[in-house]
Simulated assay, not measured.
Amino acid sequence: MAEPGTLSSIFKEKMEGILAEHEKQTTNQIAILAVQYLDGENLEEYGIKVAEKWMLGQKGKDNGVLVLLAVGDRKVRIEVGYGLEGTLTDVYCSRVIKNTMIPLFKEGNYEEGLEKGILQIIRILETGEVPTEPTLWDNFKGYRGVGEEQGFFLYILGLVFVGIIFTFAFIAAFHKEIKGVGLFFFLLVFFQWIPTVFYGFWGWVVCNGIYLIGFPIIRLTRNWLPGIKDLSDRVTGNVSYNEGGGGGFSGSSSDSSFGSSGGFSSGGGSFGGGGSSGSW
């Protein structure tokens, strides 16, 4: 693994060969710039400034791409010329950054992250096939909760909040004085978002499955099924339910840059902010 902010000469030579071959086949010009810090400059403005200074992309085709990595600032951007924005969409560039580059950058594998991201960009430019964007349902199924991004302790904290709504659901299901369905739907609202926020898609599936199946079964059997009836009697006897004001319970208790060639001399393409950025 290279020191933070540096790219090895072997990696540079390898990528220069890949980028030169891609330019030969398509005329697209792709360049990589790795710096330590942006010195307070805006990432997008910095990327456009570099792309225009290097005259990246051919005039009239606007087919340049700049991959900008600021290691010390922990930021990355894919800057796309006007002519390629229809293929390298902002949403797709964001997916490459978020799903491919950043996970490797977090581990300090800057060269591997750059290489895999560049190869994905090249593949879509050479095939011309824009990948289908994930639907809201696809994104929801892929969500793993706040702990995935912000720390495992939030998964632990989630047990408190999920435990609270299950406690209320337990009482509402077993308490014989609670006969309507209003409280069921009230709690259902909380089951939609609390487990999801902390545990993502599968937390939502498991918690809602338990609630939606368990609550009706207990309600239907709490007056006659042994075991459930006994527990229902205990809950009813030990927890008082007040329906008055809406209901209630109470208990009894360094810089590196390179591209596909030594310089770009085709006149330079135009850039207008197409692409995407990310940080970690």
Rank of each mutant, 00 (worst) to 15 (best):
residue 2 A to N: 15
residue 2 A to C: 13
residue 7 L to S: 08
residue 11 F to N: 08
residue 13 E to T: 14
residue 14 K to Q: 12
residue 14 K to F: 05
residue 22 H to M: 07
residue 22 H to Y: 05
residue 23 E to D: 06
residue 24 K to W: 06
residue 26 T to G: 07
residue 27 T to F: 12
residue 28 N to W: 06
residue 28 N to Q: 07
residue 29 Q to A: 07
residue 30 I to G: 03
residue 35 V to F: 09
residue 37 Y to P: 02
residue 37 Y to R: 14
residue 40 G to Q: 10
residue 42 N to Y: 09
residue 46 Y to D: 00
residue 47 G to P: 05
residue 48 I to G: 09
residue 51 A to R: 02
residue 52 E to N: 15
residue 52 E to F: 03
residue 57 G to P: 08
residue 59 K to D: 06
residue 67 V to W: 03
residue 69 L to T: 11
residue 71 V to M: 09
residue 72 G to W: 12
residue 72 G to I: 06
residue 76 V to F: 10
residue 76 V to H: 07
residue 78 I to V: 15
residue 78 I to D: 09
residue 80 V to T: 05
residue 83 G to S: 10
residue 84 L to P: 08
residue 86 G to Q: 01
residue 89 T to D: 01
residue 95 R to W: 06
residue 98 K to T: 08
residue 99 N to A: 09
residue 100 T to E: 14
residue 102 I to D: 00
residue 103 P to A: 05
residue 104 L to I: 00
residue 111 E to A: 03
residue 112 E to P: 01
residue 112 E to F: 01
residue 116 K to C: 02
residue 118 I to C: 01
residue 121 I to E: 01
residue 126 E to V: 04
residue 129 E to H: 10
residue 131 P to T: 02
residue 132 T to V: 12
residue 138 D to P: 02
residue 139 N to E: 14
residue 148 E to P: 01
residue 150 Q to T: 12
residue 152 F to L: 13
residue 156 I to C: 03
residue 158 G to P: 08
residue 163 G to H: 08
residue 166 F to A: 04
residue 167 T to D: 11
residue 168 F to L: 14
residue 169 A to N: 05
residue 174 F to G: 09
residue 174 F to T: 09
residue 175 H to G: 13
residue 178 I to A: 05
residue 180 G to N: 11
residue 184 F to W: 05
residue 186 F to N: 08
residue 189 V to F: 15
residue 191 F to N: 04
residue 210 I to N: 03
residue 213 I to V: 15
residue 214 G to P: 03
residue 215 F to N: 12
residue 219 R to W: 10
residue 220 L to W: 13
residue 224 W to N: 04
residue 233 D to V: 04
residue 233 D to E: 15
residue 235 V to K: 08
residue 237 G to L: 10
residue 238 N to S: 07
residue 239 V to P: 05
residue 239 V to L: 10
residue 243 E to A: 15
residue 248 G to Y: 11
residue 249 F to S: 02
residue 255 D to E: 14
residue 257 S to M: 08
residue 264 F to Q: 08
residue 266 S to R: 11
residue 266 S to K: 14
residue 270 S to M: 04
residue 270 S to V: 12
residue 272 G to Y: 03
residue 274 G to W: 14
residue 277 S to I: 14
residue 277 S to E: 15
